[in-house]
């Protein structure tokens, strides 16, 4: 598909783009002669760009999966308390445990799953409505709980050392990302994305009403849960190293559907590729535009929100509910 080619091209250009030695592109000649340039490209830029690819793929794929299995195009991975749980976990670690990258990441991933688990348990106990409605309600409640928790943590945080760190994490960034971090999240991302990718046609069935999906031989509850866990494994892994990068999961599947129709057989792989391209481009801007870095989450929100407005104003964007 032409998107794959585009991703490779964007990636290739991004390797040479940056602020060393001067803002703009680095020449191939410099890469072969300058020791400093080589070290920069291979030890800093490459892991960072590859992580941006994983980040964009995971968030966009998880967004596509969430939208399909909840039969609602306005849902995103931050939905079932996952993102808020991860933020809480990170802030919690920064204040009470350790500010080391590892502690923050593990804590964020754990709380992301805790958010999902709480939403799930709460949804099972809600007394009315269909399963999807109950999950949505539970997700809203759990997200609110965790975000007020984040508020409390910010309030008690040391304003000089801890608060900036929390804020920085909440804004999302790929700054100072290294190979070990990339390798650490790679397995989780690959597993999560592979499960979703293999089920890409079946996801269509799960976008239908429960009884219809059942009548077509699916196990709606079990298969949705499997996909949900796969999506959250991939997302919590990338969130744990990159912080909160919002809007990718909501916007990218919309663009993919605009290009390829509704069938998840095409929407899911297209979302992964477009998500990767989007994340790499945003990260290019984040690191090359100004001498000081712009947090990635700010850029994705800014650009994502702008694209969303344009999408909404286009006539075919009508969403039926």
């Amino acid at each position: 598909m032409w998107l794959t080619v585009l991703l490779v091209v964007v990636f290739g250009i991004s390797v040479f783009l940056g602020r060393y030695p001067t803002p703009g592109f680095m020449s191939l000649e410099r890469l072969t002669t300058d020791e400093m340039a080589r070290s920069l490209v291979f030890n800093l830029r490459l892991p960072r760009l590859l992580t941006a690819v994983l980040l964009g793929m995971s968030l966009a794929a998880a967004g596509a999966v969430f939208q399909m299995i909840f039969g609602n195009p306005l849902v995103e991975p931050g939905f079932l308390g996952v993102s808020q749980g991860a933020s809480f976990g990170a802030a919690f670690s920064i204040i009470f445990l350790s500010t080391s990258a590892w502690a923050v990441q593990v804590s964020a991933a754990l709380f992301a799953f805790l958010g999902l688990g709480l939403s799930y348990l709460l949804a099972r106990r809600v007394r009315y409505g269909g399963w999807v409605l109950r999950l949505v309600l539970a997700g809203i409640a759990v997200s609110a709980l965790f975000s007020s928790g984040v508020g409390v943590l910010k309030y008690i945080a040391d304003p000089l050392s801890q608060l900036p760190e929390i804020t920085f994490w909440l804004l999302g960034s790929l700054t100072s990302l290294t190979w070990p971090q990339f390798w650490a999240i790679l397995p989780a991302v690959v597993v999560g994305l592979l499960v979703a990718f293999q089920m890409r046609w079946r996801i269509n069935l799960l976008s239908l009403n429960d009884e219809t999906a059942f009548s077509l031989g699916a196990a709606p509850g079990r298969e949705r849960t499997l996909l949900l866990v796969a999506a959250v494994i991939a997302t919590s892994a990338v969130i744990s190293v990159a912080g909160m990068v919002s809007w990718v999961g909501l916007i990218i599947p919309h663009i993919a559907r605009r290009l390829f129709g509704a069938d998840a057989r095409y929407v899911l792989p297209a979302s992964m590729l477009i998500g990767a391209i989007f994340a790499v481009l945003c990260d290019d801007l984040a690191r090359a535009l100004f001498p000081g870095e712009i947090p990635l989450g700010i850029l994705t929100s800014l650009i994502g929100a702008a694209i969303f407005m344009v999408l909404m104003m286009r006539p075919q964007a009508a969403v039926e509910r």
Binding site: P73, S207, E211
Partner: peptide, 25 residues
């Protein structure tokens, strides 16, 4: 479930469809 799916077909009264599938898809 698979055997039931081959045995029984259901045509619901109406169905909520959230995405723009083509008829063939």
């Amino acid at each position: 479930r698979r055997a039931l799916g081959q045995w029984l077909g259901l045509v619901p009264q109406s169905e909520h469809i959230a995405f723009e599938y083509s008829l063939l898809e």
